[in-house]
């Protein structure tokens, strides 16, 4: 979808490498107090520990909000306009953006989702999310392993 694939650095790169190694969506988790957090941060905002791991999540979540773009500066995305981008609240608590194969008109706030990841490079995974029962159009379906 995206023509643009970033080359992350620092703890964002560590997160991508963890997802790629596990072939699952992983999220940063505090060793000190067990809280999940995203995007990756140096210190836990609750207990200030700087000890954290990246652990696989269940892959369940729901739509907290979403964007519907009718124009995109990225030619890869423009070809699919209008397209939705989901703001997903994972069951573990943290939230992140996800691409979706679901048409914008079929998305509702609160809808249950299953997330999965697709490695676009050795250093970057894209997160996908769709309603668990949704049939993916073949042309847009990433080859990726899901958590759920």
């Amino acid at each position: 979808m995206s023509t643009y694939v970033p080359t992350p650095e620092w703890i964002v790169l560590d997160w991508h490498h963890a997802c790629i190694a596990a072939e699952l969506l992983c999220i940063q988790r505090c060793v000190g107090c067990g809280r999940w957090r995203h995007p990756p941060r140096r210190f836990c905002p609750a207990c200030q520990s700087d000890q954290a791991t990246f652990e696989p999540v269940t892959g369940g979540g729901s739509v907290l909000s979403f964007a519907v773009s009718h124009r995109s500066l990225d030619p890869g995305w423009q070809a699919h306009a209008p397209y939705a981008t989901l703001l997903v609240e994972l069951d573990e608590g943290p939230r992140l953006l996800a691409a979706t194969t679901t048409p914008p008109g079929e998305i509702r706030i609160g809808q249950r989702l299953a997330v999965r990841t697709e490695a676009l490079s050795e250093h970057f995974v894209l997160v996908w999310a769709d309603p668990a029962s949704h049939d993916e159009p073949a042309s847009m379906a990433p080859r990726a392993r899901g958590n759920a």
């Binding site: 995206s2 643009y4 995109s72 500066l73 953006l97 996800a98 676009l120 894209l126």
Partner: peptide
Amino acid sequence: VRNHYAPYGLMS
């Protein structure tokens, strides 16, 4: 934007 939004088609 570079790391978390643009790859999802959100640039502007």
